[in-house]
């Protein structure tokens, strides 16, 4: 594969999804261990240390990179679990670890000085000062930017923090909250993506078909949506719930929709962004193959000065897409 100015970083929740990502043209694949150390700690998902070693070997044989997300915040008294994850990542041969917690960055730098460090979006670093501090203190070489920045802000920030690389989200789940700081899931279920690695844990989710055919979605003890049969659906999270207030029913935070920044590829390349991230470690290998393949073609076309429109409507939450904050129509 020829070197592109924009690296395509793709999700894998299972070994099969990893192989699908590599085959579809990912430059790098990111994964997590099967515990609370990563922000997609869903039942039946993720890799054991043995599977991770095999994944690294397969990825490297294909000439691609493997990043390991250890991007939750260690719970008090349980930091050994997170330290072990960093050790396992280094032992597996990861090309980088994606971290959010300052203590974990310090541990990784001190214990595995040759291990490349990427800053997770969970760290919510969005100013030149914060990013420079993390680079100077811990040797962070790439920062994944929050999904709330406009294209102009991404451009300015990328220039300001060079030679630290920037990585931005291009497709997938659209989290509108300040990542790493959102407590909505914790408020209702007692578990959050920040410390348990899971937003709206499956054990707290219930779907029920009502006698008239409507479907009710509940999270813990809270009804978060009720919709007619056949209408598009989203993830059962509080931020995508539909509530009744002042005699009006609607989405208070965000409608079910997916981020799709394909239209902004030329702008992101021009901005000097180093990597484009696809969200979705919780998705199946069919999603990974489809989205990665479409974005591979779109990036290659954009680099060559052309333009292709990825056909990904069937993979989108709620069947709809948004360019999010990139085009500044949404804040």
């Amino acid at each position: 594969m020829t070197a592109s100015p924009l690296s395509l970083v793709c999700p894998a929740g299972t070994p099969a999804a990893l192989d699908a990502a590599v085959e579809a043209g990912a430059d790098a694949v990111y994964c997590g261990f099967a515990d609370a150390t990563n922000a997609r700690n869903f039942p039946g998902l993720n890799f054991s240390p043995v599977e991770m070693r095999a994944a690294a070997a397969r990825t490297h044989r294909a000439g691609r990179s493997l990043y390991i997300a250890i991007n939750t915040f260690p719970r008090a008294g349980e930091d050994a679990t997170w330290h072990r994850a960093v050790d396992n990542a280094a032992e597996a041969g990861a090309d980088a670890v994606i971290l959010a917690d300052l203590g974990l960055l310090a541990y990784a730098q001190a214990t595995h000085p040759s291990l490349r460090l990427h800053l997770s979006v969970q760290a919510a670093a969005s100013t030149p000062e914060a990013i420079r501090y993390l680079a100077q203190t811990f040797g962070v070489q790439r920062v994944v930017l929050p999904r709330v920045l406009t294209l102009a802000e991404v451009t300015d920030l990328t220039a300001a923090v060079a030679p630290v690389e920037t990585e931005v989200f291009a497709f997938g789940g659209m989290c509108v909250m300040a990542e790493g700081r959102c407590q909505l899931s914790s408020y209702v279920t007692g578990q959050s993506p920040n410390t348990h690695g899971v937003c709206s844990p499956a054990g707290a989710v219930q779907f029920r078909r009502e006698p008239g055919g409507d479907v009710t979605a509940r999270l813990g003890s809270v009804t978060i949506d009720r919709h007619s049969a056949g209408s598009p659906a989203g993830y059962p999270t509080l931020c995508k719930g539909r509530f009744r207030a002042n005699a009006t029913t609607g989405y208070l935070f965000e409608e079910p929709t997916s981020l799709n920044a394909a239209d902004h590829l030329p702008g992101l390349i021009k901005a000097g962004v180093r990597a484009l991230k696809i969200e979705g470690r919780q998705r199946g290998r069919a999603y990974v193959a489809r989205v990665v393949g479409e974005f591979r073609r779109a990036i290659d076309a954009a680099v060559a000065g052309g333009f292709t429109v990825p056909d990904l409507a069937s993979e989108m939450e709620g069947g709809r897409a948004t360019a999010g904050a990139y085009d500044q129509r949404w804040r």
Binding site: P232, A233, A286, Y287, S314, E317
Partner: peptide, 20 residues
């Protein structure tokens, strides 16, 4: 594994009830 479960769910082609 030829189709993504979330995609089927989003488009309401797949209905799930019970223990998620």
């Amino acid at each position: 594994g030829r189709v993504d479960g979330d995609s089927l769910f989003f488009s309401r082609q797949l209905m799930i009830e019970g223990d998620m």
